[in-house]
Design a binder for these strands. Structure first.
Lengths: 195, 195
DNA sequence: CTATGAATTGAACGGATGTTCAGATATGCA
DNA sequence: TGCATATCTGAACATCCGTTCAATTCATAG
């Protein structure tokens, strides 16, 4: 067997990402220091630089991985035929995927302004790619007559804002189950697009 | 004439708030230093403490004033009679008011976690008060049969998220006029609530 | 013009920041 | 066992942070 790099049973790398995600989500990127992250992992600050070239890249990697995960998961799911069913699939997927990783979602939305310009552009492309997935569903439905939309781009932005907004108030074990929330939101979305 | 306090033609106070708002909106509270704000105003850092007891209070005041302005402006506008007209009034008001002060809106949404606990609670009360204004419209419309809503609280959160989302993409001089955006969003909201 | 008090400076305080690196430690393979 | 290398420490670097305050400048009232 070829010698593996990092053949020690080292898991510090993932721990660093997890601690950084937790801390940045709760305090904000600028307010979290490398020493805080290191303390959470149980190492000294200098050791973090074995796993990231700098603090900025750590943030960028968290956001990029979140969006790549979002796109990959969406892309690997089978697509229904009819626009109406595609819309249902998207709504439920979006709520479910976002509620399952609130910290990553929070960071991806709140820390955009802390990205260096090149990193910002890369993240914006990924986000736009995801938005286009919904927009193409709406466009197809509008064309087929299943939906009635004065402006598909605005409907796209409106629906994504609405669905992502669930993350700001939903609490597991609250008044409504996640399935019920999904159904109620889907119902509102359906009516909003004239389905 | 009684001697006025600050009878010098001093406008530094408002300038401090304006500079702080501009800088915090673009870089984030934790990333902006008192020295940066002072430089923007054209004074030394120490002078800022004539206008705010500390950095935390400066943030709190910005957010509180934004929400008090929102509630006061909303409260002073005449209310239509029918729920359907009230909903139209709210949608147009919300989009217009928020698009007119994007920096204050941005700060009020993004910097909540940088508030000290007491300040956070105070801001949350103001925000909830505003949400209740929409919720009572929806409740009245649901009762009167003008709207058909499975859950007024969820509809409230969904609509506010949708409307506030305009701030993330709207650009003056873009493809659509503000009035057209207001109309399209109102149309989607009306359908979403079953009006 | 002078006295008064508001407005501001500029230096200083202790401490935190991201990052680097020589040296120490731990691990797995020969 | 001994060697190579991955992992980590702990101190150091220059710089920035929020905040305080004695000293100074400034504008106005009398």
């Amino acid at each position: 067997m070829a010698r593996k790099i990092g053949s020690h049973s080292n898991i510090t790398g993932p721990l660093v990402r997890a601690a950084a995600q937790r801390l940045i989500a709760s305090q904000g990127f600028a307010a979290v220091s490398m020493r805080q992250i290191a303390a959470e992992v149980g190492v000294q600050a200098g050791a973090l630089y074995l796993y990231t070239p700098d603090k900025q890249t750590l943030l960028f990697d968290l956001m990029r991985e979140h969006l790549e995960d979002l796109l990959a998961t969406w892309g690997s799911a089978p697509k229904p035929d009819l626009p109406s069913n595609q819309l249902e699939h998207f709504c439920k997927f979006h709520i479910r995927h976002h509620l399952a990783r609130p910290e990553a979602v929070f960071i991806a939305y709140m820390e955009l302004r802390n990205l260096a310009p090149d990193n910002f552009r890369a993240i914006e492309i990924l986000r736009h790619t995801y938005e286009d997935e919904l927009e193409s569903i709406l466009r197809a439905g509008d064309k087929s007559g299943d939906f009635k939309l004065p402006d598909t781009r605005l409907a796209t932005m409106a629906i994504i804002a609405m669905l992502t907004g669930v993350n700001t108030w939903y609490q597991k074990g609250g008044r409504l189950s996640q399935e019920r929330v999904e159904r109620i939101y889907l119902n509102m979305v359906r009516r909003a697009v004239g389905a």
